[in-house]
């Protein structure tokens, strides 16, 4: 009956399989060679060597879980933003969300110095800071979008918000002591490997709530496909929807960014890949599919950060950009062709 749903019978299992394969590979493959049999033993609770146990359970496993949830979160937030702003190039970075989160985290870190301890607020503080920061920027962008109809202008506004927050952070650095700057600097590189189990205990629930929230918005997002006017005429409560979208995207993109730093291109590229794969605009299909594809893709990128044969680890942003940039270019070319 529905072409997309038919396709999804076939593609969903494939995606699930891919996800599992990538997850397992990410855990098994790293700088240090650990044989699969040993990994199996470690997971089963048998300790073979302390070093390897640490590597698998406290380094690779959290990293893989981070990639899984962060990939899903960033991609879904990109999808929601693209639908709401009716802009194929919307995404957490372009619309300044990442910068907002970074501003929140920077303010927290530097304000933390006034209260004596760097870890005064702990993980909870980082979440709040990232949430508030990205929520703030997204709200500003939404306010701007109600006045601006031209989609390119909106993107530029998002980029300007991004620049503004980055500049504010730079300024803050001048008034801050070196260690805080150092700490902030580490964060800006973007990394999946710095997350520990304690932090995952916060990040995973936040992402799950964000994802559930986004799924609950599937009908509203479908309505928005025809534009705000039509959506309202079909019963959409625009105000409530806007607020929920802000919360949802802040939870997804804001929290992930405050923990992992800015991770490029995922939110922008994955929704397009999903649409192309499933050939649908229906969010009942797109939301879960984007989450899965995003998770799989980030896991794949994480696997690729390990250059085979060499001991170097590439930064994750390099890989997401390598894959993401061509996708974005392809999108733009394709859109202009149709016109």
């Amino acid at each position: 009956m529905n072409f997309a749903l038919n396709r999804s019978h076939f593609v969903y299992p494939l995606l699930t399989l891919l996800l599992i394969i990538f997850f397992v590979t990410d855990v098994c493959y790293g700088t240090v060679y650990i044989p699969f049999s040993e990994i199996w033993q470690i997971m089963a609770g048998i300790e073979v060597s302390h070093g390897n146990k640490f590597i698998i359970l406290d380094f690779r496993l959290p990293k893989a879980l981070t990639a899984l949830f962060a990939g899903a979160a960033l991609s879904v937030s990109g999808l929601v933003m693209q639908t709401f702003f009716r802009n194929a190039l919307a995404g957490p970075y372009v619309l300044g969300l990442s910068s907002g989160a970074s501003l929140g985290v920077a303010l927290l870190v530097m304000a933390g110095s006034f209260f004596g301890g760097l870890l005064q607020f702990g993980q909870w503080g980082i979440i709040i800071a990232g949430l508030l920061g990205s929520g703030f920027v997204l709200t500003m962008v939404m306010a701007a979008s109600s006045r601006i109809t031209d989609s390119v202008s909106l993107l530029i506004i998002g980029l300007m918000f991004g620049s503004f927050t980055s500049a504010t952070v730079s300024l803050l650095q001048y008034f801050s002591i070196p260690e805080l700057i150092q700490s902030y600097l580490f964060w800006t590189f973007g990394s999946l490997s710095g997350i520990g189990w304690e932090q995952l205990g916060f990040m995973i629930p936040a992402v799950l709530i964000g994802l559930l929230l986004s799924f609950s918005l599937q009908k509203n997002l479908n309505l928005l496909l025809l534009g705000e006017n039509y959506a309202v005429s079909m019963g959409l409560n625009l105000k409530t929807t806007r607020i929920l979208i802000v919360i949802c995207c802040s939870l997804l993109a804001g929290v992930v960014t405050s923990f992992c730093g800015p991770v490029a291109f995922l939110g922008l590229a994955v929704p397009h890949l999903t649409r192309g794969l499933f050939r649908t605009a229906d969010h009942r299909v797109l939301l879960p599919a984007t989450a899965m594809l995003g998770a799989a893709l980030l896991l794949f990128c994480d696997i690729c950060t390990q250059v085979p044969g060499k001991d170097i680890t590439l930064p994750i942003n390099a890989l997401t950009s390598l894959i993401g940039a061509p996708v974005v270019i392809a999108i733009i070319m394709k859109r202009n062709q149709r016109l």
Binding site: G51, D58, S193, G194
Partner: peptide
């Protein structure tokens, strides 16, 4: 330094 950074933190966690 005051901040070890994520990688060194992990290494310290390993004991």
């Amino acid at each position: 330094t005051e901040i070890l950074g994520p990688n060194l933190n992990k290494i310290q966690q390993a004991g």
